[in-house]
């Protein structure tokens, strides 16, 4: 129809217009600022919720948040978390040892979701290289940080309802302990 009627000149013009358009695109890009980031020199700030290296945070009073409940290791789809719980010197449950094998970790964040005390958190740190693969096995000492991470104010024991965080009945929303010998009716 219209194409068949345009003839040789029409075809030439059509091709030239296409060429000119591509050249124009090339030319404009020649003068634009490049998007390439100089990665090791420049590190782009990542959102707080980026799923990178895992840390163990502390509650506002500076104590370890992790109670070694085994939920993260239970949730971990690649079995890269292991630990042993024990009774700490203050009567609180804590991890005797806690180990994450980052060589195996897939940074899925299921452990963070499972963590009931908000101790285990994924951080934006994603690039950490080792010469020896065994060095990817992080122990509790390497995992523990000195802050509360994304939830600086949360203290599990304030809500738990067990004595380890203070005397019974002293927590949020708790009544004084029942006096078994009370004479009140």
């Amino acid at each position: 129809m219209a194409d068949k009627k345009q003839g040789v000149v029409g075809a030439f013009l059509d091709g030239a217009a296409g060429l000119a358009g591509s050249y124009a695109a090339t030319m404009t890009h020649l003068f634009r600022k490049p998007v390439t980031e100089q990665y090791p020199e420049y590190k782009r700030p990542l959102p707080a919720r980026t799923r990178g290296r895992i840390v163990l945070t502390r509650s506002p009073d500076g104590k370890e948040r992790c109670v070694a409940c085994y939920l993260c290791s239970g949730a971990c789809p690649v079995n890269c978390i292991s630990m042993q719980s024990e009774v700490g010197p203050d009567g609180r449950r804590q991890a005797a040892w806690f180990r994450i094998n980052f060589a195996r970790c897939i940074y899925c964040g299921l452990c963070e979701e499972a963590c009931p005390t908000l101790a285990l958190q994924l951080t934006p740190e994603f690039a950490f290289c080792k010469d020896d693969i065994a060095d990817f096995v992080y122990e509790k000492e390497q995992l523990l940080v000195e802050h509360g991470g994304k939830h600086p104010d949360y203290d599990f024991y304030a809500h738990a309802g067990v004595a380890a965080g203070g005397p019974k009945g002293s927590h949020i929303g708790e009544d004084d302990p029942v006096d078994v010998k009370s004479i009140l009716p």
């Binding site: 309802g161 067990v162 019974k168 708790e174």
Partner: peptide, 20 residues
Amino acid sequence: GRKRTYLDQNLGPFIQHEMN
């Protein structure tokens, strides 16, 4: 309402008591 709490007892070497 608020939650009820109890004090625990030491029931010897075998059984741990957490009455809450």
